[in-house]
Simulated scan of single mutants.
Amino acid sequence: MGRFDGAMVLITGATGGLGRGAAKGFAAEGARLVLSDLDEKTLAAFAETLEAETAILAGNIADEKLSEDLVTLATERFGRLDVAVNNAGIVHSFVRLPQVASDEARRVLEVDLLGVFFAMKHQIPLMERQFKASGKGGTIVNIASVAGLGGAPKLSVYAAAKHGVVGLTRSAAAEYATKGIRINAICPAHTRTAMVDGFVRGSGAPEAEALAELTRGVPMKRVAEVDEVITAILFAADPTNSFMTGHTLAVDGGIGAI
């Protein structure tokens, strides 16, 4: 018996490092999946590798209609929505604030912050209706960042967006604490995904040197592995973890301890 046997789980940004890991983790625990990302071919190819009943819908999370359509797909295909993992996100160039292009800043805010807002705006009413009908609502896990808990030099707009995700998480969790909906945020430090790989390539330095620079403020002196973050996501979504809501769970190698 898996922790999520028969549960319907929606994951955005499903073909990125954390999205793939989350999809595999929930599938291994018996979930049924609705997956979304930008590229339909990549999304379809990934879905075929999963041993789970899966539906897909490609699109841009910055477009509110995608969030509406994903909830409709979950309802029409599986009858309900038990868990939503709002993971889709991007990062801007690693530069000081005045050097961030305005168009790039706007894009980060649209995807990383408004994308989560749109997702929750359409996920919450369905979960509330489910709770009224059956006493079983749902769980939302927003992927924020350790950059949403403190300053992030050279990632200012990204940090602002992730602070916004934390604010949305805490506010909605308080609003729906008696409505059968738990809402929490996972706040990872740098994780071994395409974002970190891009930083390493862009630095022009040897990988070990680039990673040392990236993690010099991390007491563990390393980046997180994807599976370490997935463990936290599954914990936050676990139906037996029923008294945790409005929480920002840092997976940060000790950054928050100093």
Rank of each mutant, 00 (worst) to 15 (best):
S102G: 03
N60L: 02
R106F: 15
V83I: 02
E51N: 08
A52D: 01
F117S: 07
H92M: 05
R96S: 07
M120Y: 02
A133F: 08
F94P: 13
R106M: 13
S134Y: 06
S145M: 04
A147S: 10
A133S: 08
A84G: 07
A144V: 14
V85F: 10
V91C: 01
A101V: 13
F117N: 10
N142G: 14
F118Q: 12
K121N: 07
Q99H: 14
L57C: 00
I56G: 02
F117L: 06
K132H: 11
R80C: 03
E51Y: 09
D112S: 06
D69S: 01
V71P: 00
D69A: 06
D112Q: 04
E51P: 06
I90Y: 05
S93T: 14
N142W: 14
D82V: 09
D82T: 03
H122Q: 03
L70H: 06
V83K: 04
L70C: 08
G89S: 06
A88G: 03
I140K: 15
K121A: 05
T75N: 04
A58E: 03
L73D: 04
E51K: 07
L57R: 04
Q123V: 04
E68R: 01
V100R: 11
S134K: 07
I143Q: 13
V71C: 00
M127C: 06
I56H: 01
A119M: 13
N142Y: 13
Q130W: 15
R77Q: 11
L149I: 07
P125W: 00
G150H: 14
I56F: 08
N87R: 07
A58D: 01
A133R: 01
K121L: 01
A52R: 13
Q123H: 03
V85D: 09
L70E: 04
G148V: 12
M127F: 00
E110M: 15
V95Y: 11
S93D: 13
I140N: 10
E68M: 03
A74H: 03
G79P: 05
G59P: 03
G115L: 05
D69N: 02
S102W: 11
L97N: 13
L109F: 12
L114D: 15
L73R: 00
R107L: 05
I61R: 02
I56N: 02
V111W: 14
G115N: 05
R96V: 13
A62H: 01
A144P: 09
A144I: 08
M127Q: 01
V100C: 12
V116I: 15
A105S: 06
Q130D: 09
I124W: 07
L114R: 12
K65V: 00
N60V: 00
V108E: 05
K121R: 03
H92L: 12
V116N: 11
D69M: 10
